[in-house]
Every structure is written in C-alpha cells, then in structure tokens.
C-alpha cells in the first residue's frame, strides 16, 4: 500500500460567475514513480474533470507545467511525489495572469519579454543560400547552448522578489537571454545597445541579487554568474556613457 496523499489545490475559474477563489482537497494513493503529472491527471479523470492545469511534454522539456509546489515554484511533471510530504499544496504561479486553477498565462508574458529584449540575432547581413555556413568554435556554440537551455517556464520570475513587486521588471530569464546574445558572434549589437534595453531599474539594476531565481531554475541555469557579469558590464557601460556625455 502506498502512502495516502492529500492534495490541497487552489481553485478559481474567473469565467464562472459562481466561482470564488478557494482550496479543494483531493486524496490519492501513491503509486511507484508517481509524478505530479500522473497525480493531477488522475485527479482530473477520477475526481474533478473541471480541474485546470497545464502539461505538454510531461518530460521536463517544454516548460508548461510550472506551479508553486509546497511553497516553491517548480515543474510539476518532474516532481516525484515521493520527494514530497503527504500533504501537497499546489498554487498557480504568481506574477502571471491566472487562467483558472493552476493554469496561468505565460505565453503573453514571454512573448512581451522576447519583444522587449529583442530576442533574435540582430544582423545587417543577408542569408546566402549558396554559401557555406560561417564557422564557429564548438566551445562558443556550447557556451551559447548552455544559456539557451532556458525553457521559459517562469519559475525564476515567480520566485523573484522584484518581479513580484514591480510589474515592469524583466526578470532573470530576460537578463539570461541578453547574456546569450552577447555571447553570440553572429549578433552585431553593441554593449551600448544592450545597455539601452537592460541598463535600467526595470533591468539589471532592479535586481536585488538575492538569487531566488537560480535556486528554483529547473534547468539549473547559471543565473547568478550571468547577473554578475551583466551588472559589471552594464556598470562599465553606464560609466562610459556618462564619460562620453561629459566630453561632448
């Protein structure tokens, strides 16, 4: 016999005038290798078919299923119930707009983030289909990949004190994205251009450096290092800007 698990799940359907925010309790018997994906799917099928939550890949790859699990943001599909106590409290991610129950609108938030940081290779060159590719050192490719592994799950944003206080804060995920493009020799943006995007209180200077973000990142991205590097670089760029301003 497995453990008897008790799930306390946040419930609210904004589309239903009769619905008010509250918590519902569900009981399940634990089975081998049970993840929150397996548990929630069972609760929906066997107990309450209206329960809203998001899963897609169920393999920790797509970033769909972030929620607050016993007080901590994480990917539900890669959380084994055996790592949790018998009482499991599930809440939707804060910061993002609630769709219903455990489901939040990360799509709109991340699209806006990508637009804001200009999350694409900026270049004046045109693609030449007849030419061989430009060469790149494998080590550089791997460094870029290391940062590109972010799955836009939103855990770092949900855990971030600044992001919870000010809506316009871009979050560690955006700063990591900028760091990814700064590494990329194909991107022609100058430090000054990056500075214009994130050298503000909405960007790197809004960060309090408490590193809740790195703590919760399910992809173990080196957010602390990236924030440090950016802060130093942006500090320099700020100084240089000031200096060139004085001379003109």
């Amino acid at each position: 016999m497995g453990r008897k698990l008790t799930f306390e799940i946040f419930r609210y359907n904004p589309k239903d005038p009769k619905s008010v925010p509250h918590t519902d309790g569900f009981q399940l018997e634990e089975t081998d290798s049970m993840t929150l994906f397996i548990a929630l799917a069972r609760i929906r099928e066997e107990q309450d078919p209206s329960l809203q939550f998001d899963f897609c890949c169920r393999a920790g790859i797509c970033g769909s299923c972030a929620m607050v699990i016993n007080g901590r943001p994480g990917l539900a599909c890669k959380t084994l119930t055996r790592e949790l106590p018998e009482r499991i409290i599930l809440m939707p991610l804060p910061v993002f707009k609630l769709i219903g129950d455990l489901s939040v609108d990360t799509g709109t938030w991340f699209r806006a983030m990508n637009e804001k940081v200009g999350s694409w290779i900026h270049t004046d060159k045109a693609f030449d289909p007849a030419a061989q590719e430009e060469r790149m050192e494998n080590a550089v490719a791997e460094e870029i990949y290391e940062l590109e592994r972010c799955v836009e799950c939103g855990c770092c944003v949900a855990a971030c004190g600044t992001a919870n206080m000010r809506e316009d804060f871009v979050g560690a995920v955006a700063l990591n994205r900028i760091a990814r493009f700064m590494l990329d020799p194909r991107d022609s943006r100058t430090e000054k251009e990056y500075f214009d995007v994130i050298g503000t209180d909405e960007g790197i200077f809004g960060c309090m450096g408490l590193l809740a973000c790195e703590d919760v990142c399910p992809k173990n991205l080196p957010l602390q290092d990236q924030l440090g590097i950016l802060r130093r670089k942006m500090g320099w760029t700020a100084l240089k800007n000031l200096f060139s301003f004085k001379r003109t």
Partner: peptide
C-alpha cells in the same frame, strides 16, 4: 543543407567540428 545553414544564420548554436 540550405535549411540547416539558414537555421545557423538565424541563431541555432549547432555543434561544430573540433
């Protein structure tokens, strides 16, 4: 081959020959 190179041009960090 063109499609792979196009993706490289747009930013995919393909692993490279060492």
């Amino acid at each position: 081959p063109v499609a792979v190179r196009e993706m490289a041009f747009w930013g995919t960090p393909w692993n490279r020959v060492v």
